[in-house]
Design a protein around this nucleic acid. Structure first.
Lengths: 211, 211
DNA sequence: GACAAAACAATATGACCATATTGTTTTATG
DNA sequence: CATAAAACAATATGGTCATATTGTTTTGTC
């Protein structure tokens, strides 16, 4: 038996590493596989079996780390939201503090964050959580933390004024929601050029230029 | 068996076009039940059996009118999109041609169109179609028709100038996408007051007031 | 009134899914 | 190195799903 056992090769794995470290790597690997599956086939059409196959691990291994599907989904959502926060932290440093900073950030965010498999997977999870009480109870708090973390991160980027705080929050929320809806509506047609035009229109509106 | 004569008993039954009419009523009834199910439990968690129970019809009846699930979903999407177009046609007449027309329309649309079970069901279908090629091929054209119908309907409502056409399209698209994303993101938290604030902020931005 | 097609109904089928169960290997630590 | 816990693996189970199948009733037309 065990002819086709999906073992990790030990040549690359750190021997001195701890059990905990290996466990974290396995969890990450499974979450990444889940991300792929959710993006490719949608949340409900992705079975545990498919995630297992995509990750190249055994069903038992997945079950050990994520006893239920909700456990896996919550972990995947947390993983994706955490990566998004890290993206903003990085992007913030790379963007010059000129007057186009905001528009550049929006456009870059669209390209590098929203039009990715990672965001597609997150969208699947969010929509699934809408009609699944248990899942929503797990995911909603993480989503709220994510929103706050990003707002805190970008607070000093937008020039704004005195009422910049509330204004920033509103503009960020509108932008985020608009991009999400753009994926759902116009993404279904698949016209990337048209979507970019909409993004540009949003930047114009949000920065008050060209009016 | 049971060869009773159908010659009499015409007083109570519909006189003409009975079969076609009854068929349309049945189809509508099933689509409405599907809408309920999709909104309450999500697309993939709604089984044909549940739609059948909600509609109070037999499985055979549903199968007769919609041989496959995709047939049912396409019909439901078409039904919902058609109702949305009718909503805009009605709303357009009710709104005075003052300078607040646009803002009023946005707010009314949010209340009466987006925060409804009908739109929740549509959202479920759109997201499901993202990762289901067959379903997308059926739904995407209907969605495109819907978008064009609404744009044509509202073309004369926004003052706009020469470039009003392109500008209107962009503003409508952004607003529509923003509301959809608002449902997905902030709707998960369930704070209706916060969402209304975002809508107000969008109206301010789109109309250029208070800047 | 005969007759075919449409409409409606009830049951059957085969696939798939989440998870439970049971067994084996690896790792940390005394 | 003994040993217990953690990690990993293979199979089993009960339920649900979409759809196929087959049978019955209703309706339009000749």
């Amino acid at each position: 038996m065990l002819m086709t056992s999906p073992r990790q090769d030990k040549s690359t794995a750190a021997p001195a590493g701890k059990r905990e470290e290996k466990s974290a790597a396995m969890r990450r690997r499974i979450c990444e596989a889940a991300t792929e599956c959710f993006a490719a086939r949608g949340y409900h059409r992705s079975s545990i079996k498919q995630v297992v196959d995509a990750a190249g691990v055994s069903l038992g291994a997945l079950q050990h780390h994520f006893p239920s599907k909700d456990d896996l989904v919550e972990a995947t959502a947390t993983h994706l939201l955490g990566r998004s926060v890290k993206w903003f932290q990085r992007a913030k440093l790379n963007i010059a503090q000129d007057k186009n900073a905001f528009g550049d950030m929006i456009r870059q965010s669209w390209r590098e964050q929203f039009t990715t498999d990672e965001y597609a997977a997150l969208l699947e999870i969010l929509v699934a959580a809408r009609t699944d009480e248990d899942l929503r109870a797990r995911v909603a708090p993480r989503l709220d933390d994510w929103r706050r973390a990003i707002e805190a991160e970008l607070r000093d980027l937008v020039p704004g004024g005195d009422d910049g705080a509330g204004e920033l929050e509103a503009v960020l929320t509108i932008g985020r929601c608009m991009m999400t809806g753009l994926l759902v509506h116009d993404g279904l047609i698949g016209d990337a050029g048209h979507m970019r035009k909409v993004i540009d229109a949003w930047v114009r509106l949000a920065t008050g230029s060209g009016r």
